[in-house]
Computed example of a mutant assay.
Amino acid sequence: MFDDLPPDLDRLHTLRVWHAMWLQRIDAKIAALTRRQAEEGHGRRSRPAPPEWIVELGIGDRRPPLQVHAGDCYIAGKRRRPVDRNEARRLLAAGLKACGHCRPDSALGITELSGRPALTAAAAQ
């Protein structure tokens, strides 16, 4: 039936140990990948939702606001803080610049702001 196996007992025991070792390694890898997938799934489920609106901040001690962005805007810099809808509307109405890519002014229904002066750092606080 299994003519390709060695005829002596010593070599058969060696093959059995070798295959048992590989089965143990394969089972350990399966368990590790199963744990990893479970952790990734848990991470995706428990990740907080991105903010709806963000304000990009400037450099310096006071970090003045520079632009309003949608929460998922890819252009927004690393210095930012989340804001709610009302604060985003207030900042845009006060003259803070809207991002030209994600257009938060259009999404918030504030499109007639071209004639307003720029927002100062004191007015943003």
Rank of each mutant, 00 (worst) to 15 (best):
D4A: 06
L9Y: 11
A28I: 03
L66M: 05
L92T: 09
P117D: 05
R11S: 13
L108F: 09
A32K: 11
L12K: 00
R103G: 03
P7L: 06
C99K: 02
R89K: 13
R89Q: 13
V68Q: 11
L5A: 04
R35I: 02
R103Y: 10
N86S: 14
R47N: 02
M1H: 01
W18D: 11
W53Y: 13
G41D: 09
A107G: 08
K78T: 07
I30R: 08
R35M: 03
R25G: 11
P6H: 05
A123P: 04
D105R: 03
D72V: 00
A118L: 01
F2N: 01
L15I: 14
R90G: 10
L9P: 00
A88L: 10
D84Q: 14
V55H: 14
H19P: 00
R116F: 10
P6K: 01
G58C: 13
I54N: 08
V68H: 09
P65W: 03
E52W: 03
G100Q: 07
P48A: 02
R36E: 11
T34F: 01
M21T: 15
H101L: 07
P7G: 06
M21G: 08
D8C: 07
R81L: 00
A123G: 12
D3Q: 06
E87D: 15
C102Y: 07
R81I: 02
L119N: 10
R45K: 06
P64G: 04
W53V: 04
H42S: 04
L12A: 08
A76C: 13
P50F: 02
P64Q: 01
R25C: 14
V68D: 09
I75C: 04
G109W: 12
E52F: 04
W22G: 14
L15V: 11
L5N: 08
E112P: 09
L12V: 05
I30L: 07
W22S: 15
Q24C: 01
R79Y: 10
D61S: 06
C99T: 03
P82C: 08
G60I: 07
T14L: 06
L5D: 14
P65K: 05
R63Y: 02
A93T: 06
L108H: 11
R16A: 15
D61F: 03
D105Q: 10
V83M: 09
P51S: 04
F2W: 08
R45T: 07
R44G: 02
T14G: 06
G58N: 09
T34N: 04
E87I: 03
G100K: 08
H19Q: 15
